[in-house]
Write a protein that binds this DNA or RNA. Structure first.
Lengths: 123, 123
DNA sequence: ATATATGCAAATAGTTTGCAAGGAG
DNA sequence: CTCCTTGCAAACTATTTGCATATAT
């Protein structure tokens, strides 16, 4: 059974309280302010656990892994200059994907679109 | 100036001759059959150089980096079970992305959609 | 009580870098 | 002949794992 610990709770709160999309290292830093003795292994382990449990979402964009408090399906736009990640919902009906993959026999379960370009500050 | 070496040529041929999407380690293995003495640093360096030069394309999907002989814009479907990568073209007009990102002031330069599900063999 | 979770340190995977020797132009 | 490229080994980064101890249930 999944236990409630102060570390796990603090890690979840660190992600849920973020309006950006923190990396594991950033979550570690934020949690350390509340629980100075926390180990980074605990943070990594719990980010994985929480993502598996569907409480947070793990997004890999480019070479970095980031965590998102939003668990509903949505897409992301990445700034090529500063790396900033912006949430966006790209309207893409599943039928369009199914049609595109029809001949390959691929069964579509989900999708994620990454848009790249320049954010408002960098353009 | 970018020089023509037998290593670089073999690395390019290894990717261009692939119908799958090899990882750096797979390219290394393939090149070693032709040039047994090649170092993995040479492979990594050249995959980067070739990708920068637009001769091949680097794709990061999930936790693995793979190389694609196709340099034209297209999308990918990843099998959740076996990890197989299938090329696919998802019809997504740039105007749709621009409209979705209008309010954030993000300037769209490109996009890539990752579809996940099960390939024909795994479903 | 008992099994899960933590903190630490060491291990691992994938990739990058420094450097002397080699080879392309 | 110059300077880019190679091969080797060491360095590095991000993440994972082993293990004894602590703690939630």
């Amino acid at each position: 059974m999944i236990r409630q610990t102060k570390q796990r709770q603090a890690i979840l709160e660190a992600v849920e309280g973020s309006h950006d999309h923190p990396t594991a290292a950033q979550v570690y830093d934020r949690v350390r302010r509340v629980l100075p003795g926390v180990g980074f292994a605990t943070v990594y382990r719990n980010l994985g656990t929480l993502a598996e449990g569907g409480m947070i979402r793990e997004i890999r964009v480019g070479e970095v892994t980031q965590y998102d408090r939003r668990t509903d399906r949505h897409d992301h736009a990445v700034c090529r200059r500063c790396g900033k990640l912006v949430d966006v919902m790209v309207p893409l009906p599943i039928e369009v994907l199914q049609a595109a993959l029809e001949q390959s026999g691929f069964q579509v379960a989900g999708h994620h679109t990454e848009v790249f370009g320049l954010c408002s500050e960098c353009r």
